[in-house]
């Protein structure tokens, strides 16, 4: 019944899982913010996530070591990022197209490995909830914010860290300059190639962790194409968040809360067709993006390959 939605337990449940579900968006979008700030659009996030999700799950399943799973996922993400950086920086590929290529590659390979190495859907014991003494005991608040697992906490910590790095450090200044006017940055001795390699690889690593957070911290399973478009929403969130970590956080929470709501609607058996419920976050993506159009200017050199004229 619809009235079930408004009981305290259910509301706390919706909010708590909303907070939790924002995790993969945060990792992936923060990585994408770095990339776009340096002028690189990575549309391959989804592929990197799927490979990261599989790598983490498989390692965790076979060794029982979750951290080793995360580490392997990060390595896989870094390798994907490296390949993407080579294609983007050295071969100066069209970023929209090459990104789709990386997505299809990641999806295909993760699917293949799943069939060869696992064959069926298995579960793994994921990261346990960590209770913070004192904070976790606060009624409501404790359950919503402070009874999550470690990957969730780290995802939220990334937001201020990313803001600080982008706005307060020399590295951040270089990243922004490369995304705004690479010619000028180059003339000042900033290596455009090195900065973009860095941001693309960082983006790969964070996307893979986003995937890992799904497979060994939130859902604790691996399925074919389990990200189902989440990586693309992460790209949209960067636009929505106007290239600011805090903006991305707001967007991620909005989507995850809606997602959480639709999950609970299904769980409670409220008579709304499940197809429509599942559609909600995606419809919202489109509406929000339309509303967000041209609010803030994108980095000037976004998607433009850099080449010193000769």
């Amino acid at each position: 019944m619809i009235s079930d939605l408004f009981s305290t337990t259910v509301l706390i449940g919706i909010l708590a899982s909303g907070i939790r579900l924002a995790t993969p968006y945060l990792y992936a979008s923060i990585g994408e913010v770095f990339g776009q700030k340096s002028g690189v659009l990575n549309l391959g996030i989804e592929g990197q996530m799927l490979l990261g999700a599989f790598a983490a799950f498989y390692v965790a399943l076979t060794t029982g070591n979750l951290w080793l799973g995360v580490l392997v996922a990060m390595i896989v993400g870094a390798v994907m990022g490296l390949a993407m950086a080579f294609v983007t920086v050295n071969l100066r590929a069209q970023q929209g197209i090459s990104g789709i290529g990386f997505y299809l590659f990641g999806m295909g390979v993760s699917d293949l490995l799943f069939q060869k190495l696992l064959g069926t859907v298995e579960t793994v014991k994921g990261f346990p909830k960590i209770f913070i003494p004192g904070l976790s005991d606060i009624p409501g608040v404790g359950e919503i914010f402070f009874s999550q697992n470690l990957l969730v906490y780290i995802a939220y910590l990334l937001v201020p860290i990313a803001w600080f790095v982008l706005n307060k450090t020399t590295l951040g200044l270089k990243i922004r300059s490369v995304g705004e006017n690479p010619d000028a940055a180059d003339s000042l001795g900033v290596s455009v190639a090195r900065i973009r390699y860095f941001t693309i690889i960082l983006g790969g690593i964070l996307s893979a962790v986003a995937g890992a957070s799904l497979s060994i911290a939130l859902l604790n399973v691996f399925q074919q194409n389990m990200t189902s478009g989440l990586g693309f929403i992460a790209v949209a969130l960067v636009y929505f968040g106007a290239w600011k970590p805090a903006g991305v956080l707001g967007g991620a929470l909005l989507f995850s809360m809606i997602n959480s709501l639709q999950l609970w609607i299904q769980v409670l058996g409220i008579p709304i067709p499940s197809d429509i419920a599942v559609m909600m976050p995606y419809v919202l993506t489109i509406l929000v993006l339309v509303a967000a159009v041209s609010r803030v200017r994108a980095p000037s050199a976004l998607t433009k390959p850099f080449e010193r004229e000769d």
Partner: peptide
């Protein structure tokens, strides 16, 4: 001009 319009004057200045 080889500069970064959305940034502050000082940021432009110190980048080099």
């Amino acid at each position: 001009p080889l500069d970064f319009p959305p940034m502050r004057v000082l940021d432009n200045f110190l980048l080099g």
